[in-house]
Design a protein around this nucleic acid. Structure first.
Lengths: 132, 132
DNA sequence: TTCCTTTATCACGATATAGTGATATATTAT
DNA sequence: ATAATATATCACTATATCGTGATAAAGGAA
């Protein structure tokens, strides 16, 4: 369906969402881990994840209070795999991707711990204020 | 580059632009022919074509006052071919595509003639007003 | 030249989207 | 029950985008 392709294109027309998909190609992540990597507030990240999920690109698995997001294994929208394949063919030396990957490694090393999303959001906001 | 992929995704995140690309997969068309098929004003069509061109998906060839648009043969952005391939794998029975194809055949049959874009735009606007 | 045409671009209004803070819900621990 | 946490959703602002009419630029015919 034309509509499905447009929905997926729209989902991938935002830099933040493409970054999320590329991160999830490596391993699953929860919302607060993505906050840390992306440097964005909890509601922002959650909204982006909703859009990607609605397009069928990613799926969620709840464990306790955490929501773990990963690439969709559902093959309903067969075109989505082609879109993912395009993203996976991106060269690894892209500065954005490299930077995210560095943070991903750090976040993975720490593992899942209580991070207090409200506090974390505040720290993130401060960082970006300092950066200008 | 990540930026290129996002630019192409954004270009294909609009229904009108996807319709244009699918039409141009069949044969080249000028702006006023696309107006007729899409049922949109000249400035709108021209703007969409500019976005698709900026993304490297299509290219233009001027002949006299006419600008003929077709799929880009430039291989600079190698991912664009993958996007085009996704669109070309769409089933032909999609209602939107079928309708456009019908109009494409009619427009092709008529060929290139002076159509007076301002008048044409007025007629198009009237049609859409009648349709609601 | 003057007139008519096609196309690109500008300015505008209406709508859509990104990012945010506050709030609501749900889970877990005490 | 109460407290702390993670997440989703709502309401809001700032910004971006779509579609349009008017205008400008450029080619072709009289």
């Amino acid at each position: 369906m034309l509509k499905d392709i447009i929905k997926t294109s729209k989902a991938l027309s935002d830099e933040t969402r493409v970054r999320i998909v590329i991160l999830l190609m490596r391993n699953e992540l929860c919302v607060c881990q993505l906050m840390e990597i992306l440097g964005m507030g909890q509601s922002t990240v959650s909204k982006h994840l909703g859009i990607l999920r609605n397009a069928g690109l990613i799926e969620v698995e709840k464990r306790g209070t955490w929501s773990f997001y990963g690439l969709s294994r559902d093959k309903a929208n067969k075109h989505n795999l082609d879109f993912i394949r395009i993203l996976s063919s991106l060269p690894k030396n892209d500065p954005f991707i490299q930077n995210d990957e560095k943070k991903l490694i750090k976040v993975n090393k720490r593992g899942i711990t209580f991070c207090n999303t409200i506090e974390l959001g505040r720290r993130i906001r401060e960082r970006s204020n300092h950066a200008g």
